[in-house]
Nucleic acid binder design. Structure first.
Lengths: 343, 343
DNA sequence: ATGAAAGCGCTAACAA
DNA sequence: TTGTTAGCGCTTTCAT
């Protein structure tokens, strides 16, 4: 291990001067600087990051918490991958490191421990859901003064830092699109209620449907609920098929359910894009590869991750005030909802 | 900030005793232990992880390096997600933390800096490729005495730690499967040559083909090369279609290319599973959702990640000897290669 | 422009 | 069984 001390000796300066050179602080003679740099080079000296963190009382780490998802190997979803990439890019730009935490089922999640032990300076929490225990944990974090940010999840009544997307608008657009194509009997396949954006999507859907005169009773009949998995979409196919004479289009709250649904319906002889129009949500990779390709609502996950990291790190650096941002979503039209594909 | 000192005072013991309690070392009276625990609880004391790392001269972090992949938002691939999940689970089990590094294009990758600055105790390198500069960097790492492990990539002639999968066997199985179905004119769509497992797959393919008497010239005519992206598969469709009378099956080196290929061929009127048999590789999520569902070779990515972390951490903990492991792959048959689907 | 020195919170060797 | 103490490598304040 080469320490600062050895560099100082070789360069004939004090240890403090070596630090100054490496941190670029304070005035110093160009010549001194160069001598130090040469000495460091010669010895292959690299400052010890842990010692720096220790002395600075800053870990230099941004934590990212991933939700516990049984069975499904966690990352196998478009959403996490994109958000994480966005965070990673920003964190790197800011000179931070990214510490990943996989949540388990323990009540006291261990990411709280990462905070308390000061192994992270701030934290981005992905896949949070609005349950009493989750709320309580977040409130506790807030009370203890830890900096964190939620992505793609809103907690009504709290002022947590949040980077969300406009799922009301996205859903509204999706349904409007189907209406423009002439559909009116539009079923809505929603995901789990514990995510705020399920409610948002329902809100967007409802708003559009009400505009064409649908009442609560009608909407109720057109409502289905899965859990965002492909399998849940697949399983709902039968129920939707049973009411095929009262349905001419389907809006699913994510692509995975939409795809499961399309597969299930196909097996029953009901083809998406021919017998029924289908629109998904997320515009994930798979939307491009289904048959027919899936019309879907694009969510700027990458940007959301990047922005979350940026704002959070700025806050940690002293910028005052919290933040609650909503980014725009955008409909991407493909064949699953197109009239022409239906001859 | 609550420190050990305050806990010691409240409990009426020395600081060292507090440490002992928290680390469970040395003999101690049950009563002392309890007094310390109560004091800690009362003060809401949590040991400072950075200070511990500093004193122990161990970061407690396992680094994971992700390759630079332009354009494609990095995680959007099954492989990384799975491996990372596997690593995450193991790392957590072992009480380590996971530090993610996204590689950029810089020559001196910054993960080397993570090593030199001792921010990680060891490193798992994903998506490495066999280029001269990469080899040189790895050799340098080795020379500097850093512990690292490669996943899904073999460097011939080196003794780096590696967790790989049997891609020769996997490919051999895939081709044999097609042969059992009666196909003989089997084209091979490979990925980039800089990955050792491209060569492995070619090797497995060749072995099977030679067994039925194919010579080099024939194999040459059946060889295509993309870059593992869906787009590259899509673009190759035309070339394959042009030679459709000399091809009755296609083995693609990953699912993404297989899917692009199937899409491209369909647009040309050549349906996978009807006009031509197709087998992919990776058995990723999408293999289940294509139409027809894609026969593919399953690779135990999750286990590979988990094993890599386990062996590497054991090595860091002092276990002697390096490791080079190859896990088995397994063919998963679906409709894209089935005769029945071809009427 | 540079040096001296006091920590940072903990581990671990040694003493008692 | 418990206390004392010397670091760990660096940052930062205060002198000079």
């Amino acid at each position: 291990m080469v320490t600062r001390k050895e560099v100082a000796e070789l360069a004939g300066v004090s240890e403090a001067t070596v630090s100054r050179v490496f941190n670029g602080v304070g005035p110093m003679k160009a010549q001194t600087k160069q001598r130090v740099q040469e000495a460091a080079q010669a010895l292959n000296y690299h400052p010890n990051a842990i010692a720096q963190s220790f002395a600075r009382r800053k870990s230099g780490n941004l934590g990212v918490v991933l939700p516990y998802v049984p069975k499904v190997h966690l990352f196998s979803t478009y959403y996490f991958s994109e958000v994480l990439s966005g965070i990673g890019a920003k964190v790197k730009e800011k000179g931070y490191d990214l510490l990943l935490s996989f949540r388990s089922l323990d009540e006291e999640s261990d990411y709280i421990e990462r905070f308390r032990s000061q192994k992270v300076d701030a934290c981005i929490i992905l896949g949070a859901s609005d349950t009493p225990s989750e709320r309580a944990q977040l409130k506790r974090l807030e009370a203890e003064g830890h900096s964190f940010c939620l992505v793609n999840q809103h907690f009504a009544g709290e002022s947590f830092n949040e980077i969300d997307a406009d799922h009301i608008g996205g859903s509204y657009q999706a349904v409007k699109h189907l209406m423009e194509k002439g559909y009116r009997q539009i079923a809505f396949v929603n995901g789990s209620a514990q995510f705020s954006n399920s409610a948002d999507r329902y809100e967007g859907y409802t708003r559009a449907m009400r505009e064409v005169g649908k009442d609560s009773e009608e909407l109720h009949k057109l409502y289905y609920e899965g859990n965002y998995s492909r399998t849940s979409g697949y399983r709902m196919a039968a129920s939707l098929y049973a009411r095929r004479h009262e349905i001419d289009a389907i809006f699913a709250a994510n692509d995975r359910m939409a795809i499961g649904l399309m597969q299930g319906l196909r097996e029953l002889g009901w083809e998406a894009g021919r017998d029924v129009a289908v629109v998904g949500y997320d515009d994930s990779d798979v939307a491009r590869v289904t048959d027919p390709p899936l019309t879907s609502v694009a969510v700027p996950f990458y940007e959301m991750g990047s922005l979350a990291a940026e704002r959070l790190l700025a806050q940690v650096a002293g910028e005052p005030g919290g933040f609650q941002v909503k980014l725009d979503t955008e409909l991407v039209v493909r064949q699953s909802s197109s009239r022409s594909a239906m001859e």
